[in-house]
Design a protein around this nucleic acid. Sequence first.
DNA 1: GTCTATACAGCGATAGAC
DNA 2: GTCTATCGCTGTATAGAC
Lengths: 195, 195
Amino acid sequence: MPTTAQGDTDVGTPTRILDAAERIVQARGFNAFSYGDVAVELGITTAALHYHYPRKAELGRALITRYTSRFAARLKALDDASGSAQAKLDGYVGIYAQVLAQGKMCLCGMLAAEYLTLSESMQTAVREFFEHNEIWLGQVLEQGKADGSMRFTGEVEDIAKMIISGLEGAMLVSMAYGSVERFMKVAASLLASLH
Amino acid sequence: MPTTAQGDTDVGTPTRILDAAERIVQARGFNAFSYGDVAVELGITTAALHYHYPRKAELGRALITRYTSRFAARLKALDDASGSAQAKLDGYVGIYAQVLAQGKMCLCGMLAAEYLTLSESMQTAVREFFEHNEIWLGQVLEQGKADGSMRFTGEVEDIAKMIISGLEGAMLVSMAYGSVERFMKVAASLLASLH
DNA sequence: GTCTATACAGCGATAGAC
DNA sequence: GTCTATCGCTGTATAGAC
C-alpha cells in the first residue's frame, strides 16, 4: 500500500532532491553545487540526503539519467505531434530556449564543461545523452532530406553534431548575457543553411 | 636593473602562476581549481600565491585579461598574414583546434558555464572576450561579403555570434570525447554554409 | 527516513618571521 | 618574495539515536 493517497502528486524525497539539485547544477555547475544547498532548500539535513544518495557521484548519475529519459520523452512527443522535419527541429530548439529562459544551461552541456572532474559513471551518462540526441536529430534530417524540405551537403551525422554543438554553444554564451533572444538568433542562423 | 640576466626567458612568478592556473582552469574549470593545485606545481606555498594574487577572483580576472589580449594578438597576426577572409576564418578555427588538442576548453567558454558563480569583475571580462571576438569575426565576414567570396543572409553580427557560439559549443561537446576530429568536422559543417 | 553529532579533508585567506 | 603556522569555514561523508 503506497503512502500517498489518490490525488497526491506523489513527489517523494528522492524526486524533490533531484529537482532541487538539477536546477542548481544547471545554473551553477556540479562543482559549485553542494549537499548543503539542497538540504537548505528542502528543509532537511545533509545526513538525510546521504540516505537517499550516499555519494555525490551517485546523485549526479541519477540526475543525468533522469534528465536524459525526460528529454527522450519530449523528443518522442515531438515525433508524435509534429508532421514536418522543420516543425520537429523548431520544437527541438524550443526545448533549449525554455531551459535558457529559466537562466539554466542544458544539464549535460554544463557537465561537459566539467567533464574531466566527473566520475566515470557520470562521464559515460553524459556521452549517452549527446549520442541519443544525435541519433534523433539524424532521423529528423533524414526525413527532411527524403521529403525534399531540407538541403545539405555532407554526412547526416556531421550535421546532427553541428546542430547540437551549435545549440549547446549558443546556450553557453547566452548564459553570460542572460539573453534568450541572443540564443534564438543564433539558432535561426544555425538552421538557416538547411533550408 | 632587472633581476634577470641577458638570455633569460624572464618568467617571473606571477607569469608562472598564471600559466599553471590557466591550464588547470581550462581543463577543469574555475570552481574545481584551487591555489593548492598551483602551489604544488610551482613548488611554492599557497601563502606565496596570495602575495601575488591576494584573492582568487583577482587571479581569475588577471587570467581572463591576459587570455583576451593574447587572443587579440593572434587575431591581429591573422589579419597581417592572411589575405582572404576564408584564410582568416580557417586560422581562427585553427586556434580553437590547438587549444582542444591539449585537452582544454577555451578559457572564456569554460567560464561562461560557471558564469553565475563568478565575481562581477570576472563576468565583465568574460563578456568582453566574446564581444571582441564578435567584432573581429564581423570584420572578416564583411570582407568576405565585399569581395564576393562569402554569401550569407541575415545580419553580419548574427553570423558572427553563430560562429563563435558554434565553435565554443563544438569544443564543449568535444571535451566529452577528447576528439579534435569531431571538432573539426563540426567546424567545417558550420562554415560550409558561408561558401 | 530523518535527526544530532562528528570526523576529516580541503579551501581561501591572514599574521608574522625570515 | 617566500616561509611556517594557523584561522574559520565549507564540503563530503559516517555513526548511531529516534
